[in-house]
Nucleic acid binder design. Sequence first.
DNA 1: CCTTTCGGTTCAGTCACTGAACCAACCATG
DNA 2: CATGGTTGGTTCAGTGACTGAACCGAAAGG
Lengths: 175, 175
Amino acid sequence: MALGKDYATQECSIARALEVVGERWTLLVVRDALYGVRRYNDFLVHLGIPRAVLAARLQTLTAEGILEKRRYQQSPPRDEYVVTERGIALWPTLRALGSWGREQFDGARLRYFRHAECGTELGPYGECALCGTIVPVTDVVMEPGPGLDPDPADPVSRALLKPKRLLEPLETDQA
Amino acid sequence: MALGKDYATQECSIARALEVVGERWTLLVVRDALYGVRRYNDFLVHLGIPRAVLAARLQTLTAEGILEKRRYQQSPPRDEYVVTERGIALWPTLRALGSWGREQFDGARLRYFRHAECGTELGPYGECALCGTIVPVTDVVMEPGPGLDPDPADPVSRALLKPKRLLEPLETDQA
DNA sequence: CCTTTCGGTTCAGTCACTGAACCAACCATG
DNA sequence: CATGGTTGGTTCAGTGACTGAACCGAAAGG
């Protein structure tokens, strides 16, 4: 967490985790990465994050092995940030946090997450009640709920309105 | 999150949740509250948090309905902070975060969490593999693992070495 | 009285985040 | 070849959050 490093004295894996992903914006960057966002500019417009902070977060997330920087075209040279296994492993945490936020505060259904195989909506821990299993991230389909703005300003939010699998790269029609 | 409030534009319950518990130290305070810590001074020595920050966190957590301030003796007047249902509902998030931190970084077993009924160790989502259910927080027993310092300096850490149920108030022998 | 405990508040200093400006590499266009 | 657009940054001044130490007040306890 960079501030004072005091979590180091905590002898606790929660504290250890927060050292890595506890800074402002970090978990939202990981969330977007799981949603399929990969490019600097897409993170930027979707999160509304200051450029300097985004650059810093992408760097530390890469250094911690949560994202991987990958060249996807040579000319002009362009890199994308792809979420790794270690990042994918944060899905249950994000899912639990989101469930808590919605249950305790919002109420509105913003997005549905379903088991791709059977269409069942996931439980709060990312499990499929029908199949009785924890659904792997690649088998989760995300689709918009009634609470979501149907005509958002930025192209990334617009692209996220289409039902899609988690991790599947986002296609932004730059219109 | 108090910084700029930009999460408000996120249309996302994860962002909503982070508005409330995303600030530095906040989740660790909630963790301690679930472990049974209730008193200002116990939070203080166990977390090593600046007094001003602790006071601020306790206030906002109380305002958000995650903790409840409660007078436990009249003379001298003393209050304790008890975790509410809303705070208890953060247990799956903390559990997931802790599992992630240990699996991805630490490795060392610091604490075991078991289903009180049957003694089975909880899975990463707080479920009991034997009973096949999500274990309610009141039925979780916490005990020290081999990775934990067996003779810590502060009395709170020492009190947390004894196996105990979650939520059960901590008894600090002020020795 | 005098001291200690508990639960804070105050304050100066530091560090992180913010927002705007700037920059460099590369491509497309005329 | 100049111009402008796109992408992915860096720099920098200003603000706000966190830190650590000091101080404070109420209420025992001796």
